[in-house]
Simulated scan of single mutants.
Amino acid sequence: MVNTEDFSKRLHKILEFYELSAAGFADQIEVGRSSISHILSGRNKPSLDFVMKVVKSFPEVELYWLLNGKGSFPPSEKSSPETEIKKEISTPSPVQKGNSSQKNEIPFPFPQQGKSKPIKKIVIFYEDGTFDAFEN
């Protein structure tokens, strides 16, 4: 269960990091301004829909940190496995640049079988129970 007071503190931290007012934040994640007010004051608990809108609108916010306070925010500049994968996907090797048969094909660091299909989403699960999702 999410501790409402602690969740509110983490939400304040997000607002400060992005330099947003509660109203601006509500507009950004497309929820009513009163919803933000009630959650920040501790009157209401966040819904799953609310939490998912925050994570979707602000990919730097880790779901596990937002819900449980474990992990870190704001994101550090340190290199992590997911940033290495992002670099590998977004920066094709010289061999891949010249051999791409499809326009806008994204090179993928894992072996592919058969026809190449566009990648819609990659989910990385960590041993500590957290995960990161990357959508194309």
Rank of each mutant, 00 (worst) to 15 (best):
M1N: 07
M1W: 07
V2T: 08
N3S: 12
T4E: 09
D6M: 11
D6F: 10
F7K: 04
S8L: 02
S8E: 06
L11I: 11
L11R: 06
L11P: 07
H12E: 05
K13R: 14
I14W: 03
I14N: 03
I14H: 03
E16K: 12
F17D: 09
Y18L: 00
Y18D: 04
A23L: 13
F25W: 01
A26Q: 08
Q28T: 11
Q28F: 11
V31P: 02
I36Q: 08
S37P: 11
S37Q: 10
H38K: 13
I39R: 00
L40V: 09
L40Y: 01
L40C: 08
L40T: 10
S41V: 14
G42I: 00
R43T: 12
K45D: 15
P46Q: 09
P46K: 04
L48A: 15
L48Q: 14
F50Q: 04
V51S: 04
M52D: 12
V54K: 06
V55C: 11
F58S: 09
F58K: 09
F58E: 06
F58N: 00
P59M: 05
E60G: 00
E62D: 14
L63C: 14
L67N: 02
L67Q: 07
G69W: 05
K70F: 03
K70R: 10
S72H: 09
S72V: 02
F73M: 00
P75Q: 10
P75M: 11
S76M: 07
E77D: 06
E77N: 03
E77T: 14
K78L: 07
K78N: 15
S79E: 13
S79I: 10
S80C: 11
T83Q: 00
E84M: 15
E84K: 14
K86T: 06
K86I: 01
I89Y: 07
S90W: 00
T91S: 06
P94M: 12
G98H: 10
G98E: 12
N99S: 07
N99D: 03
N99I: 11
I106A: 00
P111D: 05
Q112E: 04
K115W: 00
S116C: 08
P118T: 12
I119H: 06
K120E: 15
K120R: 08
K121P: 06
K121V: 05
I122Q: 03
V123D: 15
V123M: 15
V123T: 15
F125H: 14
Y126S: 00
Y126V: 09
Y126G: 00
D128C: 08
G129D: 01
F131P: 11
F131C: 15
D132E: 14
F134Y: 04
F134P: 03
E135Y: 03
N136K: 12
